[in-house]
Every structure is written in C-alpha cells, then in structure tokens.
Write a protein that binds this DNA or RNA. Sequence first.
DNA 1: GCGGACTGCTTACCT
DNA 2: ACAGGTAAGCAGTCCGCG
Length: 849
Amino acid sequence: MDSLIQRLGEIRYEPEEIASFKEAILVGARYDGEKMVAALKFYDPEKEEIYLWRDHTGHLPYCFTRLSPDELRLNSNVIEHKGFEELESVTKFNALKDEKEEYTKIIAKDPLSIGGKSNSIREYLEETWESRIRYHESYLYDAQLIPGLPYSLEKGEHRKIIEEFSAEAQKRIEGLFNDETEEMQEYALEWTELLQQQIPNYRRASLDIEVYSPIVNRVPDPQEAPYPVICVSIVDTEGEKRVLLLRREGIERGDESILGELIPEYYDTEEELIFETLRALSDYPFILTFNGDQFDLKYLFNRAIRLGFPREKIPLTIGRDSVTLTYGLHIDLYRFFFNRSIQVYAFSQKYRELTLDAVSEALLNLGKIPIEKPFSELNYTELADYCLRDSELTLSLSSMSNNLLMRLITLIARIARIPFEDVVREGVSRWIRSLMYYEHRRRGWIIPRSEDLSEYKGVTATEAIIKGKKYKGAIVIEPTPGVHFGVYVLDFASLYPSIIKQYNLSYETILCPHTECRQNKIPGTPHWVCTRHRGLSSLVIGSLRDLRVKWYKKRARDKKLSSEQREFFNVVQLTLKVFLNASYGVFGAEHFPFYCPSVAESTAALGRYAINETTKQAEKLGIKVIYGDTDSIFLDKPTEDQIENLLEWSKDQLGMELEVDKQYRYAAFSTRKKNYFGVFPDGSVDIKGLTGKKRNTPVFLKKAFYDVIDVLSEVENQGDFKRAKEKVKNVVHECYTTLKKREFSLEDLSINIMLGKPLKAYVKTTPQHVKAALLLAEDGQEVKPGDIISFVKTNDGLGVKPVKLARAQDVDVEKYTDYVKSTFEQIFDTLDIEFGEITGITKLEDFLL
DNA sequence: GCGGACTGCTTACCT
DNA sequence: ACAGGTAAGCAGTCCGCG
C-alpha cells in the first residue's frame, strides 16, 4: 500500500497551466481556493488535452449595497471582516425603476467572505445585491467569457476566436430580420455567430464499476463504501475497451470467448485496482458515467479513502451532490437525461424510465445484459461482460446521432453561458437565469432581488381553474363530439415566446413606472406594458424564437444542404426549442430569480385572447371550430380560401404567425377534452390522451386497443364505418371473453404505475400502487421513487398484489372488465353518432350482447 | 352499519 | 425545482337512513 501511495504522485492531478495555445474550447470554470482566483478549463481538440488558466487580472468577488461608503465604514463587521478588500462607488441602472442609482460595491478577497458562511459580509447587511451569485459564474459574466466557444491564448491572455461566417449567410439572416428593430437585428446576428461555431470532437471515456454485495438486491451505500470494488470497465472514443477485475477466492473464469478480443486485467488487491482506475480517469479530458455523481465516482472516492489513500492525492473532488475530476470534466449522463426539458423536448419522450437500461433500450435499441444470478455468484467473464456493456451503453448514448448529446451540451453552454458540468447538473431555469445574469452585467444593470420584483410585480388578477394554482392558464375549447372528416389543425408557432416578443413582456416592462404606459393594457387583465423601452426578455426570447422559426428550422429541412449540415441545424433548433419552451414557465416559477407572476399571467391571458379571437374570426368566415387547446384550433372542412384568409387575418390583426400544423382524414372526439384520435391521409394515427395509450394500461388491454385503432385507421369514409364496427366488435369481444376465461397471463394483466415519492411520504392516502410497493418492500425488495410498480388487481387482502407475488387465481376479473369498458368507451363515445344510429348501442355491456 | 355523494390525492397525459 | 388544464381511479369523509 505504501508504494501505491507513493505512486499516486505519478497520476496527473491537474491540467497543465500553459502560456499559449492556438485554439481550445472553454469548457469549465471554478474557484481555486488555494490560489484564490478563478480557474478556467480549456479543451484543445487537436491535442485532446485540458489546459488550466488562472486569472491574473485581479478580479475579485463582490456584492452591492445602497449604503454609502461613509455609512458602510461605520459597520465594523464589514470593514474589519478578514476577507474585506475595499469599497467602490458605482452607478448601476435599475430597470424596475427605469433610472440610474448609486450603489457601493463591496469587494472581498474570497467568495466565502461575501456569502456562504454565517459570518460572511452579506449577513451583516440588511440589503445586498448580487451576493448570491456563485463566483465562477460572476467571473465568467464580468469577463464576458462564453463556455462552449473557442479561444486562443497568447502570453497568458485569452481571446475569443470567432470564425467568420459567410457574407451571404449574414445577409440572409439580416434579411429575415428586416422588419425588426435594430436592437433585435443585433441580437439575432450575435446569436447566430455564437451558434454556428464548429463543435469539436471530444475525446472521452465512460466508466462503470461493480461492487460486491453480500445481500441480493441491495446496492451498497456509496457514502460508507463498505464492500470492495470488484470490477471496473472503461470504454473510450478511440475504441479502447478495458475491464479491470479483482481476484477473489472461489470465482471461476468462465468462457472468456464471449468477450471477443478483450482481455480482462486481473488485480490481486483492490488497492491496485483502484489505483489503476484513478490513473485511467486522469488520462481523459471527459469522463462519462451514468449516475456517477451519486454512485460510481462517489463510491470510488470513499472506497479509496477507506483503503487509506490520502484525500489530497485522489484526483476527484467530492461535492454535496456531485463528484468532479481534478483534471478533466465529469459528465453524468443520468443527470442530463433526468432533466425534464431534455427528456421531453430534445428526445421527445422516447424514454420514460430513468435507468440506463430503459434509456439505452429506447434510444439505442440495446439494453443492459440480463443477469439471472446474484452478483456475487457471477464468474469473472459474466461480471466483466455485464460491466463492460454498461460502459459501452453510456459511451454510445453520448455518440449516437452524430454526437447529438455532446453537441446539445455545447450549445446549451453557449446560450446559457455556463460551464459544461453545470449544463449537465442544472435544470432549464438555471440556464435561463444564467443567461439573464450575463445580460444584466453586460448592460450595467443591477440584478434585482426577488423582493424588489415581488414588491411591484407580484400581483396576479386572474383566478386559476385548478385549486392551488396562482393564475389562470390556457383554454381548451369544448370538443364537438363525433367523427369529423376533413379536419385541419392550425396552430401558432411557439405561441408563448411569440407573445413575449410581440407584446414586449419582461419583468421590467410589465407594470412599468411610466404613467403614459398605463393605457397599454393586456386584454383580460388589469396589467399594462411599457411603451418606452424594449423589454430584455422580450428581446432575448424574441430573437431566439425568430431564429428558430425563420432560420434553423427551415435550414434543417432544406434539401439543398448535405444531410450533415441539416443535422447540425436540427441540433441547434432543438436546443433553441428547449429554451423557448421554458421561457414562459420560468416567470411563473417561484424559485426563479426573475419570478414575475404578472408576466406569466399576462402571457397566458394573451394566449387565451389569441385563440378566442381566432375562433371568432373563423366563425365569421363560416368555418366550424370543433376543438382547440392552448395554441391550436381544429377546423371542420375549411376551404383553401378560408384557411388562407384566417392566416392572413392573424398576421395582420394579432401580429402572430398562424400555421397549418396538420390535416386529418378524419378526427374523432368524445365530450372529453385532451382526448381524441385523428387519422392522417396515409392511414397513420394520432392518439391523444386515450387510456389505451397510457403507459400504465395493462398489455392485454393495450393490444386490444391498438387492434381497434388499426381497424379504424382503415376507415376512409362514412360508409366504411359499418364494416369497421363489426371488426371492432370482434376485437373487443375476443378481449372480453379471454379475460372472463382467465386466459391472460399475469404479465398481460399487470398495471404499471410509477412511484412518485418514497413510500413513507404517502401520508394522506395509500394508492394501489403504493399498497403493492409496500408488499414488495415487505418481501425484502428495494423500492424507490422512479420505480415502476407492476401489480394486478386481486379479490383478496388489499385488492392488489405485485405481479411477482401474485398467482393467477388471485385475479379479480370483475375489476378488469370495468377497465375494458372504460377504455373502449372513450372510443365508442366518439363513434356514437354512427354506431348509435344503426344499433342503438352506446355502452359496452349492451354492445357485447 | 352501510352506501352514495362528495372532496382530495395521485398519476399520466396535453399544450 | 418552467407553467396550468384535464381525465381517471381510488382513498377517505360526511351524511342520511325512523
């Protein structure tokens, strides 16, 4: 062990600090507590190395107060604070009041002297501004540094490298923004410049570890790290694959041929195994894991400590809920895939469950290696194979679709101005917060405290339909039940961002201080909007919206471009979509630093206004509106002229772009909102909100449901319904009788519901899936939030049993027939008119007779 | 003591 | 830690019932 500790010195601990480089991407930023300066990490794509650059400009942490320097000098807690450096009088623009103000900048020697400890300077002052911004971010904003962009370094001075983009492209973009203000044009050009820069290849490796556990189904606690690490796999972008195994007594080799060319490395001691792992980790600029923050790297670190490695020599830094590398960057894919915005908008909900198996199965069509035996009983080869697959999957997730994931991270970093490791660990509201902070610093605006905002802008005037919500949201138009042939769906392209742009919404423009603006009312609210200045968020969100709609989305579909170019434009438009979709919501989110419910409320109110006015206009033109939700209206057999007319009207009267989104051969509605299906001219089907589609629906019912949909997708006209009816009847009848005869397996009957919180957090009620989960827990299985509980309905006991613990005779068939009935009623109700007139059948029970 | 009406909780979905 | 609106099933409570 002593010699190993000695050899720890061989492991590269930090990136090299060099005086010059030609081109490297800014990827990381942190505060160097030892040297007391900001430290930046740059990635050189040529040499595939990380460089360190420490600030030498003398930049220091600070915050602001409204006290004058003289008043402050009376406060000895501040002036005599050991971290106090100096005071400086500054003028800042207060956008809430639309006037300049004098502030005193309190400069400190280190970030913790400003805030973060009980005796920090901000604790001795009643009011401080900008004292809660993390130092490394504050540094980036002040230096106007943008992560994700290439820089050069000469004699210790870095410079942004901007690759000129073609004069032609520049002209075209300018052309698109001809009708906009100069300010808007500037923003559009700046964004494009930022987004079009090359994204390099990132040299990276993925890591996965396996740990011995004496208890089956129990993952050892990474804080304690009580048991040995028995296997480590590392796979990199150059194609190298390694598996490191710990020799243990009584373990067989197994058939190594299943590993192909790979030769596992065997280690006699765990210390050597961990040493080699740490050495390998420090070889790569980027290390990818799947849940490494919570498990793999945390376990490695704590295990290393436990084995006697000195903390300061281990090339890992452990945080409250993250583990970072001292040399490279740690990208935890679990954190990124967990991000709702990424899940929904970047990957269109292709994966639902947040496990490596589920995510890779959904995105790569390849899952983890199934194992039947407990971990401790696997032979070396089986263990190696299993562990290797996890690393391979993790790396593949970052490489698929031409490195989509790495590109997304880079682009988000550029827009939000945050380091890569924060992109992966933080949510969209933090990204937008960062972008807003950057803009404030650049403009010399003081960043308002949330108290400042709520003082003037905290009011809402509408009442939400849902109890407990803060204001009224979108409207859903009551559907006209029945089958409608020839339906056109029109929608507003990014409705809320369009509204924010068009109506100048921003925290400083809503309820602004000028009396003459009070006339400029938002329909449906008592709020008014500024007529003097363009709002910051209106400008930022507006320019991003226009770029996405007018440039990136169009180019992503431009057949004149190579598929590679199109793909790039598509990644950019996806990234913009993530930001835009959250841009309205954040203003209604309390934890957002620019929380401004009046902005959110006004946005929603204008959305209702737009849809209501459009509906009125459609009806004026003689078109029947059969449904609508938030930003869309469904039209019954409109003519080309009528559509054209309505689109024109919207552009002229609302200033917003209404588009034809889709067209259905027919669409079927019941009386339920958010619940319909539509058949496209090519026979494919759009299903919205129907029970049969939901992920908790048992397989047997889902299958019957999709069989029915198949039949209905073939219906071309009213006349076809008669034959379709017979087929549908057969399908449902078959399902019903098979159920009655108990011929479905338990798996077919299982209901799958996700556990939303820890079992003990269910204090108000005990839903069925929780009852089932409690039975699993009793049986000794680990159950945690995010797990999908599979259970069947039973006659005995609690009325439910986990599939794993149930027997066929336990099943409550009656309960399942209710389920069948309610699922198909959603469809039958829509067909009521046609079916009903012929047979008088509306309810399933009658239908089956 | 039981059952129907009602409210609230929970999940999954829609935009 | 982006928002609100809707459907569905069930848990739990209240109230009436001579």
